[in-house]
């Protein structure tokens, strides 16, 4: 059964469409806006991911990997085509982006759990396990402002790894943290895999890709360039990049 299905999906971004003021809006209305401002972040992407599968997304910066995963997470609708996702998604996009520096570690754990989609009951049940996994110890009741970046990472990871989602999105986040914690995270990832979770990876590390994923998708300038066994796709990608 396929858990994620993209059919002919395109996503545009409008160049110069950041924060807008009334002046610019009025100018657009009077001058008219052409489609030439559009930029294809993704064009005509189709693929499916089966339940329990682990898939890596590779490609250069700006190739559309994060945009694609944001569509899986449901952060916005596609401009063309259809995105179907069956099941809950745990977005590990940029870990800790929901952290607030004036709150303590413990407060941030609960806040993040709530925002990422954990119920109150589950958050209370899992709190101790999350804290233990993070190895934060005595710093738990200190403001996160006093944390080192490694500690911050560990705490964010621990929350994300305890979400009860069927689909996990892991975006470029394994590369940080010390060796021991990295090993622990990788162990946790294989544990989740063995529980039948679906993993969507973005990583620039070939060893991590081949360790966890049998299949890889190569995105290039918003197009799906290759979809196949991880080793083959990596080989072509590295060959093309060299």
């Amino acid at each position: 059964m396929s858990i994620v299905r993209f059919s002919g999906v395109s996503k545009f971004f409008h160049v110069n469409r950041g924060p807008r003021l009334l002046r610019e809006r009025l100018r657009d209305v009077f001058r008219g806006e052409g489609p030439e401002h559009r930029f294809h972040a993704l064009s005509d992407i189709s693929f499916t991911v089966e339940e329990g599968e682990s898939v890596a997304f590779i490609g250069h910066n700006g190739a559309g990997k994060s945009t694609l995963l944001s569509l899986v997470a449901g952060l916005g609708p596609p401009d063309e085509g259809k995105v179907e996702v069956k099941g809950r998604v745990a977005p590990l996009l940029e870990l800790g982006s929901g952290f607030h520096f004036d709150l303590t570690g413990a407060e941030n754990v609960v806040l993040n759990a709530a925002l990422l989609g954990m119920t109150r009951k589950r958050a209370a049940e899992l709190f101790d396990r999350i804290v233990e996994f993070s190895e934060i110890g005595a710093f738990l009741d200190e403001p996160v402002r006093t944390y080192s970046s490694g500690m911050l990472m560990r705490l964010a990871f621990s929350v994300a790894f305890h979400l009860d989602a069927e689909i996990l999105i892991i975006d470029e986040v394994i590369a940080v943290g010390d060796k021991d914690f990295q090993a622990k995270c990788l162990a946790r990832i294989s544990e989740l895999q063995s529980h039948g979770r679906t993993l969507l990876f973005v990583s620039h590390s070939p060893s991590i890709v081949t360790q966890f994923c049998k299949r890889a998708l190569w995105l290039d300038h918003g197009r799906l360039k290759m979809d196949g066994p991880a080793e083959d796709v990596l080989r072509s990608y590295q060959g093309g990049a060299a």
Binding site: G117, M118, T119, R120
Partner: peptide, 10 residues
Amino acid sequence: MWSGEIRFAV
């Protein structure tokens, strides 16, 4: 799809 509790999040 988000699976949390609206009241808890608010």
